[in-house]
């Protein structure tokens, strides 16, 4: 269980995160929503200690994460996997090595420097890739992949860490709707099958509604909403996004999800595979 107490991050003129307290039980899928600049990223990066808090504490299973140093800090980062908006893969290494970097904490320095990984580790990495349907790209250089594929590799890297908790910082903000769905489905599968808590920054309300057990709304560094998606009324959304009362607020405007099958699908969202399938169907029909 992750307990955040009075967490604050101050910059010169303002608090990016302002006295946030949260309890996140194991196995929960949490969506964090809010305007850009509301402090979502800072919050996540502080949990992983990629950013240093200026006040408050983060307790995981009774251990104060904010006080960790040296090797203990590295151990925490290994236990607390991070998925980034821009994937942060090493483009010039192959996919398998990228996934294997998830094992670096468990490695000796010499083995790391010479990229020596055991067959067991390779097998583990391949299985992680296979769960995300990416095993066939294992020997491809990472920068030859598409955005959606890269994010799936990044999630496989997170799985290779055998994490206790997964943080995802806007994992679908750079992806097209089709890939966004694949990535969100993958995160949810990990959450359900492995019982790992997933905290996910999202920029669209409907993704949070569709995927999360719990939605946390941030506004100017403070929690203004915390509850199940069903409690997220339009009034609450207005408060989170700071929309003026008379301003039109439409949830569908921020939506990037595809309409369910049967309703109209815009042509430009079809993938190449869809087009091939359609062509094949037309051929068969004569």
């Amino acid at each position: 269980m992750l307990a955040i107490k009075n967490l604050t991050k101050s910059f010169k003129t303002r608090n990016a995160v302002d006295n946030i307290s949260l309890d996140i039980p194991d196995g929960q899928m949490v969506g964090v929503i809010g305007r850009s600049g509301a402090g979502k990223s800072t919050l996540l990066r502080m949990i992983n200690r990629l950013a240093e808090p200026t006040g408050g504490s983060i307790i995981f299973d009774g251990r104060d994460v904010t006080a960790l140093k040296g090797r203990e800090l590295l151990e925490w980062r290994a236990n607390c996997a991070m998925v980034f908006q821009q994937f942060n893969l090493v483009g010039r290494l192959n996919v398998l090595t990228n996934v294997l970097t998830g094992r670096l904490y468990h490695h000796g320095l010499i083995a790391s420097m010479f990229q020596v990984f055991t067959p067991a580790e390779r097998a583990f990495a391949i299985r992680a890739l296979d769960r995300l349907g990416m095993a066939h790209t294992a020997l491809q250089q990472a920068d030859t992949l598409s955005g959606g594929q890269m994010q799936r590799v990044a999630i496989a890297r997170a799985l290779a860490q055998e994490p206790k908790i997964v943080l995802a910082d806007e994992p679908i903000a750079s992806l097209d709707p089709m890939n966004a769905k694949v990535v969100m489905d993958a995160l949810r599968t990990i959450n359900r099958e492995d019982g790992i808590a997933v905290i996910c920054n999202l920029h669209t309300l409907d993704t949070a509604r569709n995927y999360c057990d719990r939605v946390i709304g941030l506004f100017e560094g403070r929690v203004v909403f915390d509850g199940p998606p069903s409690a997220l009324t339009e009034q609450a959304a207005r408060e989170i996004y700071g929309a003026e009362a008379d301003e039109a607020f439409s949830e569908s405007m921020t939506s990037t999800t595809l309409k369910p099958a049967g309703t109209e699908v815009p042509a430009e969202r079809l993938t190449e595979a869809d087009l091939q399938q359609r062509a094949r169907a037309e051929l068969l029909a004569g």
């Binding site: 980062r77 236990n79 996997a81 090493v90 010039r92 670096l104």
Partner: peptide, 26 residues
Amino acid sequence: RPVEGIRGVGGNWFEEIRYGVVPQVM
């Protein structure tokens, strides 16, 4: 970005350099 990725998985400074920087600059 790759450096941050390696830091995020719990890599130390040498591993950040080895995996995050060296492949880019070689």
